[in-house]
């Protein structure tokens, strides 16, 4: 019963935070310094790990596909399989998971520590709403950076698949053939769907992590607990949302 109540409370306060932050959208041009700072933190610092992981995910996809398809003589479709899987599913989900682990946890830790050390109280007494200067720039930055990250994830993943397809002996498909297959079954809509999914996940993860951080109560020990909770809740939300958003976009 208590758990259900706290889940409902979390949902309610997250919505409230979203509405609050949205009501300050007009202040965004004045907050451009904060916005760019967050873009840097969210985009630039996550980029290397996104690139590395998507490279290997693309590679392993090609490897697995090559292994299971060699018996059917369907090797020439590896490009299509890697392309579609990366763009529609693995790219967006992987970006979202990295965002939760790398950016979401950092956001929760920072906001929770501001809350615990009364910096948030200080803002409130100065009549500077935390939703305006702490939450809004982060949400805007994540919306701006996630598509970039997702596109890079797609491209690097496709490339990783191409390398495996060419150099692994039992596959041996030339890049030209690989990319022809990739293009043949993939439509612009598939990439767009992926980007929309990534955008949804990134936004929700950031919002939830902000909310959990700002609702931290107690002492420094709670900061760690808040970070753990934020990451767990984010991961669950990504996978649950993944199903529903995919369904809606079909």
């Amino acid at each position: 019963m208590k758990q259900i109540l706290s889940v409902l409370e979390g949902v309610g306060s997250t919505w409230l935070l979203l509405l609050r932050a949205a009501s300050y959208v007009g202040t965004l041009p004045r907050q451009r310094t904060r916005f760019f700072e967050q873009c840097y933190l969210i985009g630039y610092t996550t980029l290397p790990i996104v690139a590395i992981l998507s490279f290997f995910i693309g590679s392993v996809l090609a490897l697995q596909a090559g292994y299971s398809m060699q018996n059917f003589g369907a090797k020439q479709f590896i490009g299509s399989l890697v392309g579609l899987s990366m763009a529609r599913e693995l790219g967006p989900v992987m970006v979202a998971i990295l965002l939760a682990g790398r950016v979401g946890s950092a956001i929760t830790a920072e906001l929770a520590s501001m809350k615990v050390y009364q910096e948030v109280d200080a803002l409130v007494t100065m009549n500077i709403p935390p939703a305006r200067i702490l939450v809004l720039p982060r949400l805007a930055a994540v919306l701006a950076m996630v598509p970039v990250l997702a596109i890079i994830a797609d491209l690097v993943g496709w490339f990783g698949g191409a390398i495996v397809a060419k150099y692994v002996a039992f596959i041996s498909i030339e890049p030209e053939a690989y990319f022809t297959a990739l293009r043949r079954f993939m439509k612009f809509k598939d990439v767009m769907n992926g980007l929309i999914k990534a955008e949804c996940f990134g936004f929700v993860v950031t919002l939830v992590c902000c909310n959990i951080g700002l609702n931290t109560r107690g002492g420094p020990r709670e900061i760690g607990a808040a970070v753990t909770r934020a990451v767990v809740v984010s991961l669950i939300l990504i996978l649950v949302l993944d199903y529903f958003v995919t369904k809606v976009l079909m």
Partner: peptide, 19 residues
Amino acid sequence: TREKVRMAIVFQAGALFNS
């Protein structure tokens, strides 16, 4: 109230913005 009256508080622990 915060809009009508300018109030300030010096917190016991300072509550400075660490960043």
